[in-house]
Design a protein around this nucleic acid. Structure first.
Lengths: 152, 152
DNA sequence: TATTGTTATACTCTATAACTATA
DNA sequence: TATAGTTATAGAGTATAACAATA
């Protein structure tokens, strides 16, 4: 732990509070989905794209649910043709979950909706502030990924 | 609409994609809540703090639900002692919703949990990138608020 | 014996539609 | 007559607990 950790910890509070506005704009895209898809289902699809294939326990862990709930969620996503369950031959008790092509299309339409939600806000920002935001978000994403890969 | 709008629109796609990692860390705080509180309820409480008092229709609009669903949500939040419904004398068909002190305490514990989730990621970022992130998020928040106040 | 995942049950969340009350 | 909000019903989401199958 670096010596700066205590000051970073108080800095983290400012970032967490400042992030709220952006998170609200980010989440708005769900409202435009046609046909309507539940927040839980969006969370699962987004996670599978973000992280790639996962088994059910890992998925449950990431979305903050228990395996039972995740299993039921996957029942409906599978029935809707948005995910595929596959049993790998080398470990027949671990189910591999993956996105269908239709799910990827749906996710892309979310991206489009989000772009539309972000545009008017970004237009009101100075070019410098826009640049800072993108730089900061990209660095955050890299740091988060490094952190995930550490204990592995 | 500024002349730069088309380039901002493509920039917006980058921002929207880069934001995903931060949103995931932001949302993680819900998992630490004791006692457990549903994502929908968290959304309502966070919104009421962010925007201040609202009536039921406005709330429903903001969380992407219909008044009926929002009313049921408020039933449970009221029963849990987290929000108060009040009928203003000047317009007796508009219900004013507000947070209780207990709700504010719960929200502060979310803030603490978030700070804890953000800290290790921020620690892995350069001071410059951290600064850029906070600067960008603050500017975004201001722009979003200005935008909301425009049509009013 | 521990791990991975699925069902049985009960409660919460949500939308559609029908309703009450206020403006 | 239009608006703000609340109920009736039914389907989706979730946790607890009990279970089956694989390692």
């Amino acid at each position: 732990m670096p010596r700066s950790s205590s000051s970073v910890r108080s800095f983290a509070r400012e970032v967490a509070l400042a992030a709220e506005s952006l998170v609200r704009v980010f989440d708005r895209a769900e409202d435009w989905a046609i046909p309507r898809i539940s927040p839980s289902q969006v969370k699962v699809l987004g996670l599978l794209r973000y992280r790639g294939q996962m088994n059910l326990s890992a998925l449950a862990d990431e979305i903050g649910a228990i395996p039972s709930s995740a299993s039921r969620l996957c029942d409906r996503l599978e029935a809707a043709g948005l995910i595929a369950r596959e049993v790998p031959p080398d470990n027949r008790r671990a189910v591999t979950l993956s996105l269908t092509k239709e799910a990827r299309r749906r996710l892309e339409s979310f991206d489009d909706a989000r772009r539309g939600d972000f545009t008017p806000v970004l237009e009101r920002m100075s070019p410098q502030a826009r640049g800072a935001l993108l730089e900061g978000l990209l660095a955050f994403g890299i740091a988060a990924q490094e952190l995930r890969e550490l204990p592995a």
